Simulated scan of single mutants.
Amino acid sequence: MQTAWFSKPVAVSVGVTGSIHHLSNTQQAIDLLTTHWRDAGSPKHRSALRACQRATSGDVAPDVARAALVEAAREAHILIE
């Protein structure tokens, strides 16, 4: 497995304090999706996690995973645009 880098970081607000995280690669995204996700288990969350995992194994382009992550973050109301 390898870390797949996004063409542009994804900014999200996490936790009670709303600290801002800039996710630059699939490993950072997987960590957030598996440990601190507000709507864990939703279809978009599962899709983003699966896409990030597939990007780390080279099955999909990193920006496909990024797009799925953006959609999941938007659904969870944590995306900073």
Score class of each variant (00 low, 15 high):
Gly15Cys: 11
Thr34Cys: 07
Gln53Cys: 08
Ala29Lys: 00
Gly15Ser: 00
Trp37Asn: 00
Arg46Tyr: 06
Ser42Asn: 05
Asp63Asn: 02
Ala51Trp: 01
Glu81His: 11
Asp39Asn: 15
His22Leu: 14
Ala68Lys: 07
His21Pro: 05
Gly41Tyr: 00
His36Gln: 09
Ala65Phe: 13
Val14Pro: 01
Ser24Asn: 14
Ser13Gln: 13
Ala55Phe: 00
Val60Leu: 02
Ala76Val: 01
Phe6Met: 12
Leu32Lys: 13
Pro43Cys: 11
Met1Asp: 09
Asn25Ile: 05
Lys8Gln: 01
Ala65Leu: 09
Ala29Arg: 03
Ser7Pro: 08
Pro43Val: 12
Ala4Ile: 07
Ala51Phe: 08
Ala11Lys: 04
Gly41His: 05
Ala48Asp: 11
Ile78Arg: 02
Leu32Asn: 07
Ser13Ile: 01
Ala40Cys: 13
Ile20Asp: 12
Leu79Glu: 15
Thr26Ile: 00
Gln53Ala: 01
Thr35Val: 06
Phe6Lys: 00
Gly18Pro: 06
Ile30Asp: 00
Ile80Tyr: 04
Phe6Glu: 01
His21Ser: 03
Ala73Lys: 01
Thr3Gly: 12
Arg50Gly: 06
Ala29Thr: 03
Asp39Leu: 03
His45Arg: 01
Gln2Leu: 12
Ala76Trp: 10
Trp5Ile: 14
His36Leu: 11
Thr26Asp: 07
Val70Arg: 05
His77Gly: 14
His77Phe: 03
Ser7Glu: 03
Leu33Arg: 02
Pro62Thr: 03
Ala67Thr: 06
